[in-house]
């Protein structure tokens, strides 16, 4: 099954069971979704439940908040993360705060789905990542998914939950292949240990996690070591327990992310490690992230603006040599 099919399957199964679930967004209905995640659903559930909206992101999220208040369970789709900026007022001032401001009297069972990241030469206004901003908003659950099985289970949980969730997908993952284990009992809102190891903890999420996995062989060979790779999955709240166990075991942390380095999401992980696990460390943490520049169109420059398999491999090896590995 493909990543986008797993997401589609999750939507379909839940919509079949609960008619309060509605989908809204630009081109989600007749067009089938720009990444085909909602393909076939308008045919099955009708235009009342799969709503093609005008290009009006503020209203997409704002209406979803109102629908949730009114008793529905909306799943809103933002076509690309950059356009969500038009909806940030609704996401931050409304979606994230109503539960708290009302002292718990209002709940918002809603999801905003969010394709993001550097795809292929889409240039500065179509390539951004916003997990660092979103995860800094109290009251908003932020989930990222990098894996087909996880995508299926995580989206289902996000929809069933009575909290507002921003659900981050990566544009380059939609055609990723994988198996779904329908009987999986994992908690998709906890960090996943994707590969076990004892010498270096590499923390990542979304698409760049795949690049980490592709670089691990070369790193292990060169440094004669064993890497543990963790997929964060939940960016707010963060599963610190899983991270602490791993870092206490390996004594080394590498954080790999695609967003811009300054203020990037991984700075939270590294600052937490500095505060809480300083004495467990054998080496200063290494952070590998995107450059502090808007994403350029030219392919060569685009690739130079974000971590790649090659740059991850090279940076981790260099850091390993410098730090006694």
């Amino acid at each position: 099954m493909l990543y986008r099919e797993a997401l589609n399957r999750a939507l379909d199964e839940l919509m079949e069971k609960d008619e309060n679930i509605v989908i809204l967004g630009e081109d989600v209905g007749l067009y089938g979704g720009s990444y085909r995640v909602s393909e076939g659903l308008v045919e099955k559930y009708g235009e009342k439940r799969v709503i093609d909206t005008p290009i009006a992101e503020l209203s997409i999220v704002g209406n979803a908040v109102g629908m949730a208040i009114g008793g529905l369970r909306p799943v809103a789709e933002i076509m690309t993360a950059n356009f969500s900026l038009l909806a940030f007022d609704q996401i931050i001032n409304h979606m994230s705060k109503f539960h708290y401001m009302s002292n718990g009297k209002i709940k918002l069972p809603m999801v905003v789905r969010f394709p993001q990241g550097v795809s292929r030469q889409l240039a500065a206004q179509h390539s951004e990542s916003y997990e660092q901003m979103l995860s800094a908003v109290p009251g908003l659950r932020v989930i990222s998914t990098s894996d087909v099985n996880h995508a299926y289970h995580a989206l289902k949980k996000a929809i069933l939950l009575d909290d507002p969730v921003v659900f981050i997908e990566h544009e380059l993952l939609y055609n990723k292949k994988g198996e779904v284990n329908f009987n999986d009992t994992m908690d998709p809102f906890k960090a996943r240990i994707v590969k076990e190891g004892k010498d270096i903890t590499i923390v990542s999420y979304l698409k760049i996690l795949d690049d980490v996995l592709k670089s691990v062989d070369a790193i292990e060979k060169e440094l004669n070591c064993n890497c543990e790779v963790i997929d964060l999955c939940s960016l707010n709240p963060i599963d610190y327990d899983t991270l602490a166990k791993s870092i206490e075991k390996t004594s080394r942390l590498v954080m790999v992310e695609e967003d811009h380095k300054t203020g990037g999401f991984g700075s939270q992980i590294v600052s937490w490690v500095a505060e809480e696990l300083f004495y467990s460390l054998d080496a200063p943490p290494l952070r590998i992230a995107g450059e502090d520049v808007p994403i350029p169109y030219n392919r060569k420059l685009e690739l130079a603006s974000i971590p790649t398999v090659d740059s991850i491999t090279q940076k981790v090896i260099e850091w390993g040599h410098k730090n006694g590995l």
């Binding site: 356009f83 500065a124 179509h126």
Partner: peptide, 26 residues
Amino acid sequence: VSGGKGGSMHLFDPSHFFYGGDAIVG
């Protein structure tokens, strides 16, 4: 016209009073 950094969607040329090339609808 944009040094290869803008691409098809981001053509800018102030000498012709032409300011993009904006790809955020509206």
